[in-house]
């Protein structure tokens, strides 16, 4: 009984943190299941992918309703992330647990550092959509790409560097499937920094995309018996509750305190995962 409640509470915590900080819950769920509940890493990744789908579906519906997410851009990029996820899902069954644990520890350190130096997207307010990625006329795409660029662009911004964006999307898919995370940590910078998508639109579009990325690899885990429904169900329900709560309380919480707390948790988890990678 304690395990069941622990999974629900853990899922809720991951969903809450994820929605408040703009991350999928995977970076917390995988270490919680492996270090806290003794699950094999590959099984934890399978469970985590389910919770990523929950978070994506719940939040993407809101972002689409409000026309913040860019459906055309998201679908175009997710064709490539889904392909990357397919490759990553296969690679996950070829790599050993220690390698996966080491990769996960590296990911946690990267997330912790980027959280420390990260600009708060909410600080820019509504105007941030139009202001944080200005259209640059000096970066006109080749004539063949103009139609595609116009079609994928949105109100107040124009997409650029589609090619590198597609390559980055494949990488995001591979990382997502290997480590059981949404991949937003890769997708958002790719869209914002490389493709010139405003941060708020990039975050919303990433939320939309992670559902397909995770489901492409979750299918492989599911069919190969890599998802335990008795663990995935409480985690998913908890993540749903936590994400819903987070989206309603985000404006009342001091994100600086939360971010420091989160960095501390990530740092400790990275240390434990590194130990696991070295001592397994």
């Amino acid at each position: 009984m304690i395990a069941g409640l622990g999974l629900i509470v853990g899922g809720a915590g991951a969903g809450l943190f994820g929605s408040l900080l703009g991350l999928g819950g995977g970076v917390l769920i995988v270490p919680m299941l492996t270090l806290g509940f003794g699950m094999p890493l590959r099984d934890a990744v399978g469970v985590s992918l389910v919770s990523v789908i929950v978070t994506s579906s719940a939040s993407a519906s809101v972002y689409l309703q409000r026309h913040v997410a860019n459906l055309r851009l998201g679908m175009t990029l997710e064709l490539f992330t889904a392909f990357g996820a397919l490759v990553g899902g296969l690679l996950a069954y070829l790599l050993d647990e220690r390698t996966l644990a080491g990769l996960f520890a590296a990911l946690l350190i990267y997330v912790a550092i980027s959280m420390l130096v990260r600009h708060d997207p909410r600080a820019g307010g509504e105007g941030a959509v139009a202001n944080d990625a200005e259209t640059s006329d000096d970066e006109e795409p080749p004539s063949g790409g103009r139609d595609a660029t116009a079609r994928l662009s949105g109100p107040g911004y124009r997409i650029r560097h589609i090619g590198p964006g597609l390559v980055g999307s494949i990488g995001a898919g591979v990382v997502s499937a290997l480590l059981g995370i949404g991949g937003g940590l890769v997708k958002v910078p790719v869209m914002n920094v490389i493709m010139g998508v405003p941060l708020r639109v990039a975050t919303a579009t990433s939320n939309l995309m992670i559902g397909i990325t995770a489901s492409a690899s979750a299918v492989i885990y599911l069919v190969r018996g890599g998802i335990d429904p008795s663990v995935a169900a409480p985690i998913a329900v908890g993540a749903f509750v936590g994400a819903s709560l987070g989206s309603r309380t985000a404006h009342r919480i001091d994100l600086r305190v939360l971010r420091l707390l989160f960095v501390g948790v990530l740092g400790y988890t990275a240390f434990e995962m590194t130990r696991k990678a070295l001592l397994l």
Binding site: L79, L86, G89, V219, I220
Partner: peptide
Amino acid sequence: GILLVIAASVAIGLSGS
């Protein structure tokens, strides 16, 4: 294309299992 990739995931998963 996206649906084909998902279908490929199912097929690969089934063949692997």
